[in-house]
């Protein structure tokens, strides 16, 4: 379980202070009413807001060390989370004001592919060609906010679906979770890569170093995943995620090999994603997203909205990391110690 992080402003300070005490009763929805939620111009770059939201969501995953489990369903906390989500959602709507014409079940794969084609290869190309091992380690730390619970946010969608799109989602997730072999679970493969590069693979170990933009990409999935009304968006998110994975992961692996890291532990996560996501992409766009729209054409706009939101937040994140690397800066809030030199 992650330990409580250090606060990044008044909102996260108030939330974390509350979480270190007992949860208020179920009849107390007002306990956090006086905690102010800011409305920054760019909510996705706001450290205070993204950290607070990340912690609120974490209660639904593996929890936070030392936090009363009753907080998960505290009406007071849900009310505060709802106010944070309103800011988050308004930010998304500002980024993606219009998704254009809603695709049919038969051509949603083309619509998703079109969004995927806009995916800027900047970061994966940089890693392939020029990154140092320390920059790789930073990217792993950034990604650990999601990858150590890889696939979990999309699993929230399962009970909200039925029939063909559900079968496709489960088919994908079974693979994400290692097909019955815990050592092949993608989150485990990611942990192995972290360890191979001298990092701590404990869940949440680096939370204090991970900037808002990386947290926002995880909050996006939790937001869509935890609200049934956004089931179209979480499906669209996964469809695009799977469609923008094989090629970048191939580049990530190539960069590690360029740096002399061809060992299984270091590269298995990336190699696995090249192959797995070449399968998942088809299931996710045609069978899952197409299947959902066939059942309920009114969700087609949400499917594209989810995909577009992913493209926006991911693009902003990779842009920030790349800018830091190109300027010779650390991309983290607090840099790591340099790679321990092998004796």
């Amino acid at each position: 379980m992650p330990v409580l992080p250090v606060s990044r402003g008044p909102l996260s300070a108030a939330l974390l202070a509350a979480l270190s005490g007992p949860a208020p009763g179920l009849d107390d929805a007002e306990a956090l009413r006086d905690v102010a939620v800011p409305s920054p111009a760019d909510p996705f770059a706001d450290e205070d807001l993204q950290l607070a939201l990340y912690c609120a969501y974490e209660l639904h995953y593996r929890g936070l060390d030392g936090v009363d489990a009753a907080w998960e369903w505290s009406p007071a906390l849900l009310a505060l989370r709802g106010r944070m989500e309103a800011v988050f959602e308004a930010g998304l709507r500002a980024l993606v004001p219009d998704v254009g014409p809603a695709p049919s079940a038969e051509d949603v794969d083309l619509a998703i592919r079109e969004i995927a084609a806009e995916d800027a290869p900047g970061l994966s190309q940089y890693l392939q060609r020029s990154a140092t091992i320390d920059q790789y380690r930073e990217v792993l730390v950034q990604r650990s906010a999601y990858q150590l619970k890889e696939a979990d946010p999309h699993s929230w969608a399962m009970p909200r679906l039925y029939g063909a799109p559900k079968a496709a989602l489960v088919e994908i997730q079974a693979d994400e979770y290692g097909g019955g072999r815990p050592e092949r679970m993608h989150a485990r493969l990611f942990a192995d890569t972290m360890e191979a590069l001298g990092l701590d693979s404990d869940y949440g170990a680096y939370l204090d170093r991970i900037p808002a933009r990386a947290l926002s990409t995880v909050n996006l999935m939790s937001f869509f995943g935890l609200h049934r009304r956004w089931r179209g968006a979480i499906i669209g998110h996964l469809a695009l995620f799977e469609s923008t994975s094989s090629i970048p992961n191939g580049r990530y692996a190539a960069g590690l090999r360029r740096l002399g890291r061809d060992d299984e532990a270091a590269v298995a996560f990336f190699d696995e994603h090249v192959e797995a996501d070449a399968v998942h992409e088809n299931l996710a766009t045609v069978d899952m997203a197409g299947g959902l729209i066939r059942q309920d054409p009114s969700l087609a706009g949400d499917v594209l909205f989810g995909a577009r939101c992913l493209a926006e937040l991911e693009g902003a994140w990779t842009g920030e990391v790349l800018a830091a690397f190109e300027a010779g800066r650390s991309s983290l809030l607090h840099p790591l110690e340099r790679t321990p030199v092998a004796a």
């Binding site: 088919e171 097909g179 094989s246 192959e275 996501d277 070449a278 088809n282």
Partner: peptide, 19 residues
């Protein structure tokens, strides 16, 4: 369980598809 076989001929892990 489920595999994707390349049919474009350009994969680097044939017979599997790599995108």
């Amino acid at each position: 369980e489920v595999v994707a076989l390349c049919r474009c001929g350009r994969s680097r892990i044939r017979p599997f598809c790599d995108g």
